[in-house]
Computed example of a mutant assay.
Amino acid sequence: MARMHTRRRGSSGSDKPVADDPPEWSDVDSDAVENRIVELAEQGHSPSEIGLKLRDEGVQGTPVPNVQLATGKKVTEVLEGHDASADLPEDLRNLMERAVGLREHMAANPNDAQNKRALQNTEAKVRRLADYYRGDALDADFQYTYEHAQELL
């Protein structure tokens, strides 16, 4: 399958091994994991950062290799259950941050044609992703604009 904005083909990625049960060495309580997730979210960490911190630091000194195996829910589902979820989905927020940064770069460097193309591609991705989330995670009347993105971020 070709990449979205180039004519090159992408390289295949690796898959996580299929597992139904958490490993024996990781015997953490699901309530403790959920409390740690909410605590990290209140500190301002995104769901992917929370997963990395749980993998590296763990809960009470025991690493959590997979939150879904330990709790039966994904990190975002745990956050929604505790009313600690973010106002924007993480992938949309990251793309909007990139688009705002590229727009600021283009204001300072108007002749940078390569980054002008990167800005066009990034804003196209933001619009497609907003179409996907519109009505569920976003308001039905959400429209991406640079000014609106600056306000949200």
Rank of each mutant, 00 (worst) to 15 (best):
R55H: 15
S46M: 03
Q43G: 02
E42Q: 07
F142G: 03
P89M: 11
R127A: 13
V67M: 07
S26P: 04
D91H: 09
E39S: 05
Q68F: 02
R128Q: 13
R103S: 15
A137N: 06
V28T: 00
A107D: 15
R8D: 14
G81N: 10
P23K: 00
R3F: 06
P63I: 14
G135W: 02
V33T: 05
M96N: 07
L79F: 13
Q60M: 11
E80F: 04
K74A: 12
A84W: 05
L54P: 02
F142Q: 02
H45A: 02
V100L: 09
L88T: 02
S12L: 03
A99D: 08
D83Y: 01
H82G: 01
A149Q: 08
Q120H: 06
V28S: 00
D29R: 07
A99L: 07
Q114N: 12
L79M: 14
A113S: 15
R93H: 10
I50Y: 08
Y144K: 13
L153F: 12
N35Q: 11
N94C: 11
L119S: 10
T145R: 01
A32N: 04
R128D: 15
D20A: 01
L95K: 14
E39M: 00
Y133R: 11
D112K: 12
D15M: 07
A124R: 14
M1S: 14
A124I: 08
N35Y: 01
E24W: 00
A41N: 01
I50K: 08
E97M: 13
M1C: 09
G81V: 05
V18D: 08
Y146Q: 13
L88Q: 03
L102Q: 12
P89N: 12
R36E: 12
A140W: 08
K73H: 15
D21F: 00
T71L: 04
H105G: 05
A2G: 06
R117A: 12
A70Y: 03
D87A: 10
P65Q: 15
A86D: 12
